[in-house]
Design a protein around this nucleic acid. Sequence first.
RNA 1: GCGCAGGUGGCAGAGCGGUCAAUUGCACCAGACUGUAAAUCUGGCGCCUUCGGGCUACGGAGGUUCAAAUCCUCCCCUGCGCA
Length: 436
Amino acid sequence: MGRAAEEMLSMFFKIFTKDKQTRARFGLIETKHGTIETPSYVVVGTHAKVRCLLPSDIGATKTQIVIANTYHLWKDLGDEGLNSFHGVHAEIGWSGPMMTDSGGFQVFSLGFAREHNTGKVGIVSQNRSTRPVRNIPPIGPSGARDAGVISNGVNKNLVRITDDGVHFTENGTEYYLDAERSIEIQRKLGADIIFAFDECTSPLHDKEYVKKSLGRTHAWAERSLRAKRGEHQKLYGIVQGGAFRDLREESARYIGDLPFDGIGIGGSFGNAQDKSFGEQGNGEMTEVLDWIAPILPEEKPRHLLGIGKIQDIFEAVERGVDTFDCVIPTREARHGSLWTTFGRFDVRKNGYKDDKRKIQNDCECPMCGKLNITRGRLYELFRGWNGDAVSSNEDPGRLATMHNVFFFNELMRKIRESIKNGTFREFKKEFCSKIQ
RNA sequence: GCGCAGGUGGCAGAGCGGUCAAUUGCACCAGACUGUAAAUCUGGCGCCUUCGGGCUACGGAGGUUCAAAUCCUCCCCUGCGCA
């Protein structure tokens, strides 16, 4: 075997088909624990467990890869537990490919997001809203968030960010995470793909803050690279820059030029109000991807962190994203929201009480297929749920999660097929029109 | 028959002179959920409304009071105890 062929075989990521009309691509990511066909959904298993699912359910739902979380696992295990830890694969009881997120998202979710009760996707267009749009004071250039723990009296901000790293304080215990520690913990966790430590910003942060934060994230990216040891794990750097075009472009160049194995796309989307640099738009996810896609190195896999909903997936695939992770399928399932190719519905509503149909009649997920659970039965199980029968065939959370995860994995499979067939655009249009 | 305890919105159950259309929970209705703080959270839940408010309501009928779900009288009903 020639050297070139060998390199080919050992290649981490390989693109096989590029869509002619869009940036969508079909490819393979090779890991020690198996191959991932892309585009692929990454199922979220924060604490090295996919919520509600049994280890055997992971494969049964056609899941290709699971992402766990550095911060949460470290907190669960403690330093001692971490030293005797046998790795996320053993822990989760599944031998397929795994990722770990760096803890960068918790800088946001346990900090600013918690304090302001907000998410990473800004409210750009709100047709009707039952949810009050809170009038949150702008985050000033004074960088108040740097200053430490600020409370609005409801939810406490648990993080304190410095240029070196981040202090988390939960239940009186302080956890300090920085690039070196995150990478070291991730090494012990042993996932196939790991992420650089970063700071995820909020759509509510102004440009000055995001710019400052971006400088930190870039510095941490380099530190993450330097901290990484060995070749057994692949490390992704993370592009940030919020909803601001020049910052996103700068970040895409910066991270794209560093010797990462792949690119994570993180941070907040939407609601850019500071147009002083002349960028167009609000920095919605699609815009951000349009800004950075031409800059990112083509040959590296791109992972869109924390996204998303079905519409978002299509938009992102179209713009060259290879993998995604999101809590949507699993969380919505637990909340009774079940997906079908004609949209999603809440089986807990009374209308489904005596519904003898399956969630979707031709669905082959473990619930609809093998277990033959009807809407009425799932309704009943959700209504009567009292915490007994966890993980059994009568656990509505498990059943619904199996269905949704399978559904999303199937969707990705169909997307891959459409890219290979050159029909991605048509498939997107058709699929999205039906789920409205 | 006597004694005691009660009768409050779909149910359970607070309130015990004004801030009560009435705490709270359940049920019900609607909506969110985007690198999991969350199998969670928000709203709505007598009738009408030009969203200011208006009307009818805490077993029934009277009464006291500026004001009653809250106090008094009688009646009806329920539970427990004693006959």
